[in-house]
Design a protein around this nucleic acid. Structure first.
Length: 984
RNA sequence: GCGGAUGUGGCGAAAUUGGUAGACGCGCCAGAUUUAGGCUCUGGUUCCUUACGGUGUGUGGGUUCGAGUCCCUCCAUCCGCACCA
């Protein structure tokens, strides 16, 4: 056998695994099951970069480890193949999204397969495949045909609701959702309704319902975005402006599950950060709704929501959101002008300004007064934009002594700030929301504490019919429609203006072909372009498609039974696999995908279609691998607000360009045009040479030896600093911390800088794994990605260190092939030293895998190889178990050696070596012996020696004479296995 | 503002959970082999010091025979939410 050639070995075994279906998971097995899931990728045109596989490698290690432990492992992969980028590309080029998506998936599969993942590819799913989205549509129809019964606290079929209506009308039915959208009727009235009227009455009960909703409308993208797709008032994708607009929309009633989604979190083995984010997102608050009767408006009350009813005696004014429905009625003629002006001013401020500016106090008095329901005191009614129309009732009772915002408002408009608790302090400085102390100035709760006061007041208000305890959630229903082409068509059609669900038998409702992917001239979604696209040839279909998260909300269930044509997942199969044991993916899905998936699962559970309580028991967030962006600055002189300014916008370039530009022989001050041409030329030349653009290390680094250690020419760095102070302005967010940016060379007008940020094709900071695999092999790349640092951490990519793990693999190979010759192992028995090395690895690696601490496992292997190399070990008894241990990490190398050692079956079916603790215990143990914590010598004791024996041995020796300067020992502390400390 | 996290060499990082801080790898230095090296091997590498020795886990304090680890204070950085009543 020649020297270690990873590329040959890897190709051979990947083909072998595929041919022999080595990783095929069995839906019937006596073995215990284990389900390892990766968050499936969106197949983008750029292909994989080194950041993508990080989580996949980790989950693959766990999968292979669990197989060695004798479990039946389900480890699938698929593609979230509906989405915006393919559609944008289609609009630009006219290419069908299905075509580009297919091409991208092929690239992804090729790249994934060459890393040797143990996926069961026969279970691959694609969300854009009609045989898959048939079931996404089917689940939508289930939602459409369900309502949420608060009495049973679960979803039930709409047919049950119809039965109730027929029997007793709408009275007494408690359903999740907004009762104001619904109308009351008797059983008789129900019977009299036409079909159209009945469906209209049912619609606001459904879990998938259509309603006029304030949505985030993005004109540039021509679609509606969900809240988590909007960042700072701009679309997450593209950064276009987003406005609030009232539109008829399909919604999913996730709010019905708010409490259960919250409760369930406690049972999950997830990172605290993610659970906390979901808790905040759901935003449960326990409080009360209190009615304040309005003076001079008989029968009109203002409902406020508060979490601190106990402070109601301190409520000196009410504040309504400017959009509140009563504003118009309440405003007195004298205040009308001021109020109108304030509302107009609020509207002029964009959502973004309003969010950005939380410091300025603004508001206006309506002229009207309400009565405090507990003591009848008149309280003025104000408007202010710090009260949100969308939360609670859109009105608050302001307690300036207990709430900082109310306090600032009161100070600003000179309203009274009465104390309500004897524990409140510094009320001339700030509000004090304390719950300590006894209430004062508080009528019926004077002298009580927080808990009693709250209970007393709620009881009192309930009795008077002016209030009740109430739980509020911040969570909003999920908007489900997108005005887009490349998504699942919503299986709804309209008959006489009324929405009907498509019959299950007619699924899938296949996405029709259209000739252009833009919205129509009349502003309809792209599906409006479809010709002759009608249900049963006569009814118009719904034209919006489902959002990106629809298909990804249940894909993990389809993996269990991907080819089932009769059911979304077979009953027995679902029971067998149950929930996902380990879910690996990025933290960016904390409140989106992970919440929607849980919602769908709970819903399916209510329908008896799934059996576990939660879909994902354990979640690990792998950190992101960041890239180093390089850029050059182009100095520009511009007019900015009548002022001449020098600007230096950065231009992203590949690392090679920075390398070339910073070479000593690159001199002169090129004119702008010339420079641009040069840039393009260099990019092109590099593209030709390396096939791809990206930051693979191919040029020598000009100054110093590494990216980060920078023996930068001191003179150059000085000049750059001076120039910086003088000329460079922060003109682009990508610039970030200029102070920290490194400047490799200053040449008149151009300077090179870098920054660590997310890998992105447009920033030329992507490192392609193919090239690394070609050079070092997939095993080396796998090991290196794990070795890089803790799995969950964000870390910059640095290709330099990969040689370390490559060397390790070579050394490992050489344990079996001395002088790179033929396999040479002996059947001698292992020595105690060898057994110790081996069993330390068995123990440590198993512990590390349980803790997902793969970087330390790799170190453990390296130490073992160094030790065994030093010992000259050639023994099968030591080396063979070591191969098994290494196989989850470097599967190709391990498989090759395993077969060389004479095994016919794949190493995946080997048994994990058993750990024997006794091999780690030595006859003699060396302890540090110290005086007052200062170690003076190392001494050997029998491994079985007791603390008392060790103490005696030290005191009987001449240790004290030599080190204690005649002082007498006060005590001796013996920590078995650690240290002997004599205190003098 | 609220919530979550993180601070250890030139760099990525370890530290058996309170026991000789810096394992392992990169880089660097020296040496060996080699025509040569970007291959391989050996030794060294917290910092200061020629050495002896001292110093050292963001800051300041505390508990302890002993603290990177536990408690309190402050500082810095990152992430999430953000006028949620």
């Amino acid at each position: 056998m020649p020297a270690y050639r990873p590329q040959e070995i890897e190709k051979k075994w990947q083909a072998h695994w595929q041919q022999h279906h080595t990783f095929r998971a069995d839906n019937n097995s006596d073995k215990p099951k284990y389900y390892v899931l990766d968050m499936f990728p969106y197949p983008s045109g750029a292909g994989l970069h080194v950041g993508h596989p990080l989580g996949y490698i980790a989950s693959d290690i766990v999968s292979r480890y669990q197989r060695l432990q004798g479990r039946n492992v389900l480890h699938p992969m698929g593609f979230d193949s509906f989405g915006l980028p393919a559609e944008q590309y289609a609009i630009q080029t006219g290419q069908h999204p299905a075509v580009t998506t297919e091409k991208n998936i092929e690239t992804y599969i090729r790249q994934l397969q060459q890393l040797g993942f143990s996926y069961d590819w026969e279970r691959e799913v694609r969300t854009s495949d009609p045989s898959y989205y048939k079931w996404t549509q089917w689940i939508f129809l289930k939602l459409f045909n369900s309502w949420y019964n608060l009495d049973t606290d679960r979803a039930e079929p709409v047919s049950a609701l119809i039965a109730k209506f027929a029997e007793g009308g709408s009275a007494g039915i408690r359903a999740a959702g907004d009762d104001e959208e619904r109308h009351d009727f008797t059983a008789g009235q129900w019977q009299m309704m036409s079909e159209k009227q009945k469906l209209a009455a049912l619609l606001p009960y459904r879990l998938a319902y259509q309603q006029d909703t304030f949505v985030n409308w993005c004109a540039a993208l021509g679609t509606v975005l969900s809240n988590d797709e909007v960042k700072d008032g701009l679309s997450e994708r593209g950064g276009y402006p987003v406005e609030r607009r009232l539109m008829p929309q399909w919604n999913l009633r996730i709010t019905a599950y708010a409490d259960r989604l919250l409760q369930g979190l406690d049972t999950l083995d997830w990172p605290d950060a993610v659970k906390e984010m979901q808790r905040n997102w759901i935003g449960k608050s326990i409080g009360a709704e209190v009615s304040f009767p309005v003076q001079d408006h008989e029968g009109t009350v203002i409902k406020v929501y508060t979490t601190r009813v106990d402070t109601i005696y301190g409520a000196t004014f009410l504040v309504l959101a400017p959009e509140h429905e009563l504003v118009d009625t309440l405003t007195t003629p004298a205040q009308r002008g001021a109020v109108d002006e304030y509302i107009a001013a609020t509207k002029r401020r964009s959502e973004r300004d309003r969010m950005a500016d939380v410091k300025t106090v603004s508001g206006v008095f309506t002229g009207a007064y309400a009565q405090n329901p507990v003591d009848g005191t008149p309280v003025p009614i104000w408007l202010a934009d710090y009260v949100l129309a969308g939360y609670g009732t859109g009105a608050v009772m302001a307690v300036p002594s207990g709430d900082q915002r109310d306090y600032l408002f009161a100070k600003h408009f000179d309203l009274p700030i009465p104390a309500i608790s004897d524990a409140q302090k510094d009320l001339d400085q700030q509000a004090d929301p304390t719950k300590e102390g006894r209430y004062i100035n508080s009528g019926i709760v004077n002298g009580l504490g927080y808990k009693e006061a709250t209970a007393t007041l709620i009881a009192y208000l309930e009795e008077k019919g002016l209030g009740k305890g109430k739980v509020n959630f911040r969570l909003r229903d999920a908007i489900f429609g997108r005005q887009r082409y490349w998504g699942e068509p919503i299986p709804i059609y309209y008959k006489d203006g009324t929405a009907y669900g498509v019959a299950e038998a007619d699924l899938p409702l296949v996405l029709p072909e259209i000739d252009e992917y833009k919205p129509t001239e009349t502003g309809e979604p792209p599906l409006g372009r479809a010709k002759d696209w009608k249900y049963k040839g006569q009814y118009e279909f719904e034209l919006s498609t489902m959002p990106g998260w629809a298909g990804s909300s249940w894909y993990y269930l389809r993996y269990m039974d991907p080819h089932n044509a009769d059911r979304f997942v077979g009953e027995d199969v679902e029971k067998y696999w149950g929930q996902v044991d380990l879910y690996m993916g990025g933290a960016e899905h904390a409140t989106g995908h992970l919440l929607y998936s849980r919602f769908w699962y709970l819903f399916l559970k209510d329908l008896g279609l799934v059996t576990a309580n939660e879909p994902f028991q354990k979640l690990i967030n792998q950190g992101m691998i960041l890239g180093r962006s390089n850029f050059v600055y182009r100095l520009k002189i511009e007019w900015d607000n009548d002022e001449l300014k020098l600007k230096a916008p950065p231009i992203f370039v590949s690392k090679q360009i920075v390398d070339v530009l910073s070479k000593e022989d690159y001199k002169g001050k090129p004119e702008e045009e010339t420079f641009k041409k040069q840039l393009i030329l260099i990019q092109k030349r590099l593209a030709n040479r390396f096939g791809l653009l990206g930051g693979v290390e191919t040029c020598s680094i000009p100054y110093g030896q590494s990216d980060f250690a920078t023996p930068l020419n001191a003179n150059v760095s000085h000049v750059v600093d001076d120039i910086l102070d003088e000329y460079l302005f922060r003109t682009d967010s990508h610039l970030g911390n200029l102070d920290e940016a490194e400047f490799i060379r200053y040449s008149d007008a151009y300077t090179c800088g870098w920054e660590i940020e997310k890998m992105s094709k447009s920033k030329y900071n992507v490192v392609n794994p193919d090239i690394l695999t070609k050079k070092h092999g997939a095993d080396a790349l796998r090991l290196y990605e794990m070795f890089l640092g803790p799995l969950e951490q964000f870390k910059p990519w640095n290709t330099n260190g990969i040689s370390g793990v490559a060397t390790f693999l070579k050394k490992f190979w050489r344990l079996f092939h001395p002088e790179d010759g033929a396999l040479a192992v002996t059947d001698e028995a292992a020595s105690p030293a060898e057994l110790k090395t081996l069993h330390r690895v068995i123990q440590k690696v198993a512990q590390d895998i349980e803790k997902f601490s793969f970087n330390t496992s790799v170190s453990t292997f390296m130490i073992a190889v160094n030790e065994l190399t030093a010992l000259g070990t050639r023994k099968r008894a030591v080396l063979e178990p070591l191969v098994v241990l290494l196989s989850p990490f470097a599967p190709h190398l391990a498989e090759e050696l395993w077969h060389e050692l004479g095994h016919a079956e794949s190493i995946s079916f080997a048994a994990y070596p058993e750990f024997r603790e006794e091999y780690l215990v030595e006859a003699n143990v060396t302890y540090p012996v110290a005086i007052n914590g200062k170690v003076r010598e190392q001494r050997q004791f029998a491994a079985t020696a007791t603390a008392a024996e060790i103490e005696a041995a030290v005191l009987e020796s001449d240790f004290l004479t030599r080190f204690a300067e005649g002082k007498a020992p006060k005590k001796v502390v013996v920590v078995p296995g650690r240290m002997v400390n004599v205190v003098v």
